[in-house]
Amino acid sequence: MAHDTVSAADAGTWLLGDLKVNRIGFGAMRLTGDGGAFHLGTPSDRSRVIGVLRRAVELGVNHIDTAAFYFSRLRSANELINSALAPYPDDLVIATKVGPARDASGEWATAARPDELRGQVEENLRQLGRDHLDLVNLRRMRQDSIAEHFGALAELRDAGLIRHLGVSHVRPEHLAEAEAIAPVVCVQNRYGIDAPAHEAMVRDCAARGIAFVPFYSIAGQGGEAGAAGAESEQVLAVAAAHGASPAQIRLAWTLHQGAHVLAIPGTGNPDHLIDNLAAGALRLTDEEMTLLEQPGGPQV
C-alpha cells in the first residue's frame, strides 16, 4: 500500500454525541510498554511514544482512547498523552474508561464501587490536565446490573465533569439499563474477524445511532497480549490482493461493519501508526468480506 497521503480522515467521520471524530482513532493501551499488554513488558521509549502521539494528531487522529489504569512500572498512558499533546487541539476527543481498579503497585484490585467512580474520574482529569472529560466509558466487570454504577457517572455528567457517556464489555440488557438513565454515545466490546460474538450488538448500535468501538480487532485471539502469530488463509489472501498486511485487513474489515463502527488501533511504533491509518483507505469487495467471514480456515 502507498502511504504518501495517509490521513485518519480517509475512513470517514462519526458523531460521538455532538463531537465529530474520524472513524479511525488511536488506542493508548500499548503506549506504556513494549512486549504485550500495557502493564507488561519493558517500559516504552518515552520520546518515541510522544512522537507517535504527535504524529497521529498531525495525520488527523482526533479520537484517543485511554484510561488511568493504563500504566506500567515507569509509564502512564494519560501522562504521556498530556505531555505530548497539551494544550490540546480543539477538535481532539479523549475517551477514557472507569470501573477496573489497580493499586499503586499495579496489582488489580476489586472493581470500583459506584461511590468510588468519582475518584477515578478525577484521577483521569488530573493526569490528563483537563477540567472535564469528553467521554467516559463504564467498563462493566462481572456485575449483573450496571444501573448503580452508570447512575453515578450520570450524576458526574450532570455536574459538568463528563460530557458524554458510554459503556464497555456489555450485553444488550446492560445497554438498555444505561439508556434508561442517561444518553449513551458508544459501546466498547471485543469484536473482530475471529471474535464475532457481538454482531447483534453491532446492529443494535447502528439502529440506535450509537457508535460501536471494538477492542482487540487486530489482536484477535491474542487479546491484550497482542496479535497471535498465526493468520487464516483467508486474511492472508485478501492482504496479498491489496498489497497490505493482515493487521490492515483486520482494521479494514472492522470499518466495513458500518458507518457507526470506530477503530482504535494502538501502537508505540511510528511505522505501525502509518500502516494502521492507511487501512482506513482500504476498500474491500463484497466477495472479500464474504471470504473473511468464513468460519475457521487453515492457520498458517
Rank of each mutant, 00 (worst) to 15 (best):
Gln257Asp: 14
Glu173Gly: 07
Ala77Gly: 11
Leu277Glu: 00
Leu15Arg: 13
Leu15Tyr: 11
Ala244Met: 01
Thr5Met: 03
Asp18Phe: 05
Ala176Tyr: 05
Pro214Ala: 01
Arg250His: 14
Val170Ala: 12
Ser245Arg: 06
Leu19Lys: 15
Thr42Ser: 13
Ala239Ser: 08
Leu125Arg: 01
Glu233Phe: 04
Arg23Glu: 07
Arg142Phe: 09
Val6Cys: 04
Ser232Thr: 15
Phe71Tyr: 10
Leu291His: 01
Pro43Tyr: 03
Gly160Glu: 08
Ala28Tyr: 00
Pro270Val: 12
Gly280Val: 06
Asn82Thr: 09
Arg190His: 14
Leu15Trp: 13
His242Ile: 14
Leu236Ile: 12
Ser168Pro: 06
Ala219Asp: 03
Val238His: 01
Gly99Phe: 00
His164Ala: 02
Gly297Ile: 10
Leu92Phe: 05
Ala278Phe: 10
Arg126Phe: 10
Gln234Val: 11
Gly41Pro: 13
Gly209Cys: 07
Asn82Tyr: 11
Ala9Ser: 15
Gly226Asn: 10
Leu251Met: 13
Val235Cys: 00
Ala281Cys: 04
Pro100Asn: 08
Ala180Met: 12
Asp194Trp: 09
Arg130Ser: 12
Arg190Pro: 02
Val52Trp: 00
His132Cys: 09
Asp4Phe: 01
Val213Leu: 03
Asp34Tyr: 03
Gln299Val: 08
His174Pro: 02
Leu133Phe: 09
Pro43Phe: 07
Gly151Ile: 12
Glu107Leu: 02
Leu135Val: 14
Ser47His: 12
Leu15Asp: 04
Thr290Trp: 03
Ala147Tyr: 00
Val300His: 09
His272Pro: 14
Pro196Asp: 13
Met289Tyr: 07
Thr13Pro: 10
Glu293Phe: 05
Gly258Gln: 08
Arg203Ile: 14
Val261Phe: 08
Asn269His: 10
Val49Phe: 00
Leu273Gly: 04
Ala176Asn: 12
Leu292His: 07
Arg23Cys: 12
Ala147Asn: 03
Ala230Glu: 08
Asn269Phe: 03
Leu125Glu: 05
Gly17Arg: 05
His242Phe: 03
Val98Gly: 02
Leu161Arg: 01
Ser83Ile: 06
Pro114Lys: 02
Arg118His: 10
Ala180Val: 10
Ala178Cys: 06
Gln299Ser: 14
Glu58Cys: 09
Asp10Pro: 08
Asn22Arg: 07
His272Arg: 15
Val57Asn: 01
Ile81Lys: 00
Glu116Ala: 13
Leu262Phe: 01
Arg126Pro: 10
Leu277Tyr: 05
